[in-house]
C-alpha cells in the first residue's frame, strides 16, 4: 500500500511538472518564432543583402560574392544552426512526447510546421551530401520504402554522385506549403543544392506518422 501510494505520488508530481512546463513554456512564441527564422536561413554565407534606395546603385549592383564554399557539415553557420535547433531553448522540446497528443490543435499545428521545416532542412543535406540512399531509406515512410526498389535507388544515387559530385552548398527551401492547404495532409517543398559539377532541385512531401515526420515523396527533379 505504501509503495503504491509513493508510486502514485511520484506520477502525480511528474504530471504536475509536465503541465507546468506546457502552460508556462509553450506559449512563449518568441523563441519558437526565432527558431523558425533560423530554419529559413540558407545554409551558406552570403554578403548581406541590403535594400538600395538609389535606383542607379540598384541597377548596377553586382551579385553578392559567395564566401568559399565548404561541405555542409563543416560549415560553422550550419553547425551553429543545427545546435540551436537541437538546443534546449526550443520550447516544444520541453513537451514530453506522450503529452503532444493532448496539445490543442493549433499548438500541434504550429509544432508540426516548425518540426517539418526543420526536418526537411536537416534531412536533405544528410541524404544528398554524398548521395546516401540508405539515409533516404531511413527517412522515408514505409509506404515510400515499399514502393522503392532498393537496387534502382542505389543505382540512381550512384549515377547522381557520378554526374553531380558531392554537395558544396545547400541553398535551402525555396517553396514551402501544405500539400493540401485545407486538410493539412503534409508539407510540400522545393529545395535546391549545388554540387561539385552541377546542381539539383529537390522536391517532395513530408507527412506526420504519429510523432514522426517522414518523407512520403522525394525526388531529384532537375539534376544537371
Amino acid at each position: 500500500m505504501v509503495l503504491a501510494g509513493l508510486l502514485i505520488g511520484v506520477l502525480l508530481t511528474v504530471a504536475i511538472l509536465c503541465i507546468f512546463l506546457v502552460v508556462l513554456v509553450l506559449p512563449n512564441r518568441e523563441s519558437f518564432i526565432a527558431l523558425q527564422q533560423h530554419a529559413h536561413k540558407p545554409q551558406r554565407i552570403e554578403t548581406e543583402f541590403r535594400e538600395l534606395n538609389d535606383l542607379q546603385a540598384l541597377m548596377e549592383r553586382k551579385q553578392p560574392q559567395l564566401v568559399e564554399v565548404r561541405p555542409w557539415h563543416d560549415n560553422a553557420e550550419y553547425l551553429a544552426l543545427k545546435a540551436d535547433i537541437q538546443s534546449e531553448s526550443h520550447a516544444y522540446r520541453h513537451v514530453p512526447s506522450f503529452l503532444r497528443g493532448f496539445m490543442p490543435k493549433s499548438w500541434r499545428k504550429a509544432w508540426q510546421y516548425s518540426e517539418s521545416l526543420t526536418y526537411v532542412n536537416n534531412s536533405i543535406p544528410k541524404i544528398i551530401s554524398n548521395w546516401d540512399s540508405r539515409e533516404l531509406s531511413r527517412q522515408c515512410t514505409p509506404t515510400l520504402l515499399q514502393a522503392t526498389q532498393r537496387d534502382s535507388l542505389e543505382k540512381s544515387f550512384a549515377d547522381l554522385l557520378g554526374r553531380c559530385g558531392r554537395m558544396t552548398t545547400y541553398q535551402g527551401i525555396k517553396y514551402f506549403g501544405l500539400a493540401n492547404l485545407q486538410e493539412g495532409s503534409g508539407w510540400q517543398f522545393v529545395a535546391q543544392a549545388d554540387f561539385e559539377h552541377g546542381w539539383a532541385i529537390i522536391t517532395g512531401r513530408v507527412i506526420w506518422q504519429g510523432q514522426r515526420c517522414r518523407f512520403d515523396h522525394f525526388s531529384i527533379s532537375n539534376a544537371v
Binding site: Q171, Y175, G177, Q182, Q188, V190, Q192, W199, I201, N222
Partner: peptide, 16 residues
Amino acid sequence: PDYDQRIQDLLSWYPW
C-alpha cells in the same frame, strides 16, 4: 488549390 499546385510545379522546374 490548382493554381497553387501549378505554381509549386513551376517553381520546381528551374534553379532559384
